[in-house]
Design a protein around this nucleic acid. Structure first.
Lengths: 165, 165
DNA sequence: ATCAGGGCTGTTACGATATAACAACTAAGA
DNA sequence: TCTTAGTTGTTATATCGTAACAGCCCTGAT
C-alpha cells in the first residue's frame, strides 16, 4: 500500500478495500468516530475505484442500494471521511478519491491521468519540504495545500491501455 | 512586478493595471489576438483586485457597465484571457486571478490568504524542478499543474489588517 | 465594391456541483 | 429514564459552468 503511485499499477482492488475498511474501523474505535452505513459504503465505493468520482456519481450508487437519495447524504459522508483523513477532494476535478495512506494528516500530491482518469496519490518528502520553504520564505503561514499534476500515466503512455486495470 | 508575492505588499494597483493592459495589447498585436471591450475590461477588473474573483462577481460588474449580462459573456472572456496567459483559474476557489508575469506559459503557484482573500502568484524554480522530478520519477508525463497553498499572509499574521491594501 | 467565412456577441436554456435549514430520530452517558 | 450531541431525511435553493444557435462584424479574396 506504500509503493509509488500504486493506483497506476495492476493489483487487487478488493485487498485495497479491505485494508482501507479495517483501518477505518480501527481509527473509528480509537477516536470515537461513528461509522454509519452510508459512510462505510462511500469509502468502499471510492476505494474500489482508484479514480476520482463525482459526488453525484457516488450518490447514484447509494440511491441504487437504498442508502440515501438526496445530495446532502453523500456530501455529509464525504465531509466525514475527508475530515477523518480517508478521502481527499481533487479540486481540479470537483471529485473525491480514497486516501492511500490514511491515518494521519499529511501533505498529499495527486497525479491525475487525462487518459484513463485514474488518480494516484504520491508522497514525496522533497516536495513537501520545497513547498514549505516556498511559503515560509515569503512570510506565509501554510495551512493546507493543493498539489495536483495532470498528465498521462505510464500505462496510457505505453499504449497498454490502462482502461480498468 | 517581479518581486515575491507582490500582491501581499502595499503598492499602486493602477500601475499594475496599466502594465498589464500594455502587455496585453502588445501580445495581442504580436499574436493576432482580438481584443474586445469585454476582454479588456475583465482583465482590468481582475488586475485591480489582486484577489481571486468568481465569474459571477465579474459578470455583475460587466452588467453594471453594459458590457454583457449573461454568464457566457464572462466565461468567454475568461477563456480567452486564460488561454493567452493573462489570467489563471484558482481551482480551490472556483475563481480567477490576473497573472503577475504574463507573456509565456509557466508553472504557477498561488498563495491564498484565508484572512483577506488575496491571492499572490509566486515563481519558484526549486518548486518547479521538484515537481517535475516527482512526476518523471514515476513515469508520469506532466502536462499541467495545480499548486495552491492556503494559509495566512504576512499582513494578516501581523495583525496589521491587510484588508484592502 | 462585394461577398464569403471565421470569429465574436447576445440570448435562452440547461446541467453540474454544493449547501442552508429544520424537523425527526438514535445511541451513549448521567 | 432522561438528556443531549450527533445523525438522518427532506425540501429548497445557491453557485458555478456550458450547449446551442441566430445574428453581427471584421478581414481578406475576388
Amino acid at each position: 500500500m506504500n509503493e509509488s503511485a500504486i493506483a497506476f499499477a495492476e493489483h487487487d482492488h478488493r485487498l485495497c478495500r479491505q485494508t482501507m475498511l479495517d483501518e477505518l474501523r480501527r481509527t473509528a474505535r480509537k477516536r470515537g468516530l461513528r461509522l454509519t452505513p452510508a459512510r462505510v459504503r462511500v469509502l468502499e465505493i471510492l476505494s474500489e475505484a482508484h479514480r476520482a468520482m463525482g459526488a453525484y456519481e457516488i450518490l447514484d450508487r447509494l440511491r441504487a442500494e437504498g442508502l440515501g437519495s438526496q445530495p446532502p447524504v453523500v456530501y455529509r459522508a464525504l465531509d466525514f471521511l475527508t475530515g477523518a483523513g480517508f478521502v481527499h477532494r481533487i479540486e481540479r476535478l470537483n471529485a473525491y478519491v480514497a486516501c492511500c495512506h490514511p491515518g494521519g494528516a499529511h501533505g498529499a500530491c495527486f497525479l491525475i491521468c487525462a487518459g484513463c482518469r485514474k488518480v494516484a496519490e504520491i508522497e514525496d518528502g522533497a516536495l513537501d519540504i520545497t513547498l514549505a520553504q516556498a511559503a515560509a520564505g515569503r512570510g506565509f503561514a501554510m495551512r493546507r495545500t493543493v498539489l495536483e499534476i495532470e498528465g498521462i500515466c505510464p500505462a496510457c503512455r505505453g499504449g497498454t491501455a490502462g482502461g480498468d486495470a
